[in-house]
Simulated assay, not measured.
Amino acid sequence: MAVSTPSPAAPVRSDLESIFRSAYPRVVSVAARVLGSRNEAEDVAQEVFLSFGRSSVPAGEAMGWLSVAAAHTALNHIRSGKRRAAREQAVRGDGVAPDIADAVAARDERAQVRAALSRLPRKQAVALVLRHSGLSYAEVAAALDLSPSSVGTTVRRAESALRKELNRHAPSE
C-alpha cells in the first residue's frame, strides 16, 4: 500500500507537529469559547492547522496567528450556521417539557450571545474572544497588530457593543 505524501504545490511546514502539540489546546479553547461546543471547536482547530501547515507564518508568531485564525474560523462557522439553526428550530417546534426549561433557557442565552458576537465588527469580536480565552494583553496585541495599551480599550468597546447587540435583539416578553 502506497503512503500518501503532500503534493509539491502544497508543502507542509517541518515544524507543524511541534507547534500543533503546543498550540492545539489553546486553539480548541478559543474556538470553544466562540462556539460553545468542544466537538465543533475541534473541527475548527483542524481547519486552522490545515491552513497553518501551508502558511509561511514564522514559528515565533504561530500562537498569535493560530489564536486569531481560530476565532475568525469559529465566527465564520456561527455565521454560516444561522440558516441551519433556523431550520432546526422550525422542526423542533415550541413544545418544551417543564423539567428541561432551565437547560433550554441557558442554551438560548448562549445562542443569543454567540449571535450578537457574530454581529460585532470582526476585530472587536476577535479581541473579546481572545481576551476572554485567557490571552494576555500583550498576546492579544501581537495577534491583532494593536498596541498593548489599546487592547483594554478595544475589549471594553467590544463588551459595550456586545451588550448593545444583546439588548437590541432581546426577545420581547
Rank of each mutant, 00 (worst) to 15 (best):
M1N: 09
M1Y: 02
M1I: 10
A2C: 00
A2P: 13
A2S: 14
V3S: 09
V3H: 12
S4W: 01
T5L: 12
P6T: 02
A9K: 05
A9N: 07
A9I: 10
A10R: 10
P11V: 01
P11M: 03
V12I: 09
R13I: 02
S14N: 10
D15H: 06
D15F: 02
L16G: 12
E17T: 14
F20H: 05
F20Y: 07
F20R: 03
Y24V: 14
P25L: 14
P25R: 03
R26Q: 15
R26E: 14
R26W: 09
V27G: 06
V34Q: 04
L35M: 11
G36R: 03
N39P: 10
N39M: 15
E40C: 12
E40N: 14
A41Y: 04
A41G: 07
E42C: 07
D43P: 08
D43E: 15
V44S: 03
V44R: 02
A45K: 05
A45N: 08
A45G: 08
A45H: 07
E47K: 03
E47N: 04
F49A: 06
L50W: 01
F52Q: 06
S55G: 05
S55C: 08
S56V: 10
S56Y: 10
V57P: 04
V57F: 10
V57E: 04
V57T: 09
V57K: 01
P58D: 05
G60R: 15
G60W: 14
E61T: 11
E61M: 13
M63A: 12
G64H: 02
L66M: 04
L66P: 01
V68H: 04
V68G: 06
A69P: 01
A69W: 00
A69R: 02
A70K: 03
A71F: 03
T73M: 03
A74Y: 06
N76C: 01
H77A: 09
I78N: 01
R79V: 00
R79W: 00
R79G: 05
S80P: 00
G81R: 00
G81F: 01
R83G: 13
R84H: 11
R84G: 07
R84M: 09
A85L: 08
A86L: 13
A86V: 14
R87Y: 11
Q89C: 08
Q89H: 09
V91W: 13
G93N: 03
G95S: 13
G95I: 12
V96P: 00
A97E: 13
A97R: 10
P98E: 05
D99P: 00
D102S: 08
A103E: 04
A103R: 00
V104Q: 11
A106K: 02
R107F: 11
R107N: 05
D108M: 11
E109P: 05
E109Y: 06
R110T: 13
A111R: 03
Q112S: 06
Q112F: 02
Q112W: 01
R114V: 01
R114T: 02
R114M: 12
A115K: 01
A116L: 05
L117I: 04
L117Q: 04
R119C: 14
K123F: 11
K123D: 15
V126M: 04
V126H: 00
A127Y: 02
